[in-house]
């Protein structure tokens, strides 16, 4: 690790002040992503601002019947919270599909949103990577790209966002509450992460002096018809090749409302309003699900090793929607795919 200084923030305002005072500073919450990257010399903050003790650990109901989740709520506490289990089981399931029990105990909501790509070149300082060292080139485009993105890529970067939680949050239409030097703001989770374009070093639209204080879940949790289906190279403790968050509101067999997001395929959780609109008013059948999958995957492009993801994602979307429609969500412990 590099030789950084350490400060403990006393409150959110203090954290913002400390960030402003040192452009090389970084916030640390659970540390599970930042410390990992610091040990690889990928992240070299001049100062760590410890926010882990800030009072951002509450889960409260909002006036409109949604939930507000503090940025420091550990992933496992969130997944196992009774209100989440009852009202937002899709989110609980997505969180439990990620990492390990130990890591989920440490990882925070804010840190999870901010976790960086697992692209092997990004992690290896001996290889070129535009995200790590802008302008050096992307090693993955013509290299090993089996794990890489098929949607929303650019000629600068084809990395994926590795978060499972974010995929469910995108599907649920969550909001991100942010505080910064110029006050507070709120943005939709789907606008929080960026596409790489020509600035792959920027993962999100969070300003450099800003801090995530909370996420907000809208009232509608799709608790009856949902599924989080994660596909990976071993049955646990591995990042997604493809994952799907699917949520439906049904009246009989008719779809009233649909939510669909993909993980492991793009620089951000991949959602398409068009695909969701196409489902609305339709019967919950494999055919309609297939058409929605095609819309969601419109424009998908394959590189040398990741072509399989396109067909895999398509099938996974259909399957997750079937699971959702039949109210048999994928269990994260029982590995047979429902």
């Amino acid at each position: 690790m590099n030789n950084f200084q350490y400060s403990r923030a006393s409150d959110v305002a203090d954290a913002i002040r400390l960030l402003a005072a040192d452009p090389g500073a970084k916030l640390i919450a659970g540390g599970t992503n930042l410390i990992d990257l610091m040990k690889e010399n990928v992240e070299r903050p001049s100062r760590l601002i410890d926010i882990s003790r800030l009072p951002l650990r509450d889960i409260e109901e909002t006036a409109d019947g949604g939930l507000r989740v503090g940025a420091l709520v550990p992933n496992s506490d969130l997944a196992y919270h009774p209100l989440i289990e009852q009202r937002y089981p899709l989110l609980a399931s997505a969180i439990l599909a990620g990492a390990s029990a130990q890591l989920r105990n440490m990882a925070s909501v804010g840190g999870n949103l901010m976790q960086r790509t697992r692209c092997a070149y990004f992690y290896d300082t001996a290889t070129p990577c535009n995200k790590r060292s802008p302008g050096t080139g992307c090693s993955a485009i013509d290299g090993l790209n089996r794990n890489h993105a098929i949607l929303g890529t650019s000629t600068s970067c084809i990395a994926t966002n590795p978060s499972d939680m974010s995929v469910a949050l995108a599907a649920l239409g969550a909001l991100v509450h942010i505080a910064g030097p110029s006050g507070q703001r709120t943005i939709a989770l789907t606008d929080f992460h960026r596409l790489p374009e020509d600035k792959p070093h920027l993962d999100t639209n969070l300003g450099s002096g800003e801090i995530i204080t909370a996420i907000e879940l809208p009232p509608h949790g799709f608790a009856r018809n949902y599924s989080y289906l994660k596909i990976r190279d071993r049955l646990s403790y591995a990042f997604a090749l493809v994952s799907v968050a699917a949520a439906l509101e049904l009246e009989g067999n008719a779809i009233v409302e649909a939510r669909l997001a993909l993980g492991g395929v793009a620089h951000k959780p991949w959602r398409s309003l068009e695909a969701e609109a196409a489902l609305r008013g339709q019967a919950a059948t494999p055919d309609h699900f297939g058409r929605a999958a095609d819309l969601l995957l419109q424009g998908a492009t394959a590189r040398s090793h990741n072509g399989f993801k396109i067909e895999l994602a398509r099938r996974a979307v259909v399957r997750a929607l079937m699971q959702a429609a039949s109210a048999t969500p994928q269990s994260q412990a029982h590995k047979k795919i429902a």
Binding site: I28, G30, G31, T32, K39, L48, S100, Q102, M106
Partner: peptide, 26 residues
């Protein structure tokens, strides 16, 4: 040393965590 194996698991205030990704100061 990177949160990938669990060999470093300890209990902090009763919860299991990876001590390799935990800074002692924190």
């Amino acid at each position: 040393d990177h949160g990938q194996c669990g060999a470093c698991t300890v209990l902090i205030d009763g919860r299991r965590v990876n001590s390799c990704l935990t800074l002692a100061v924190m």
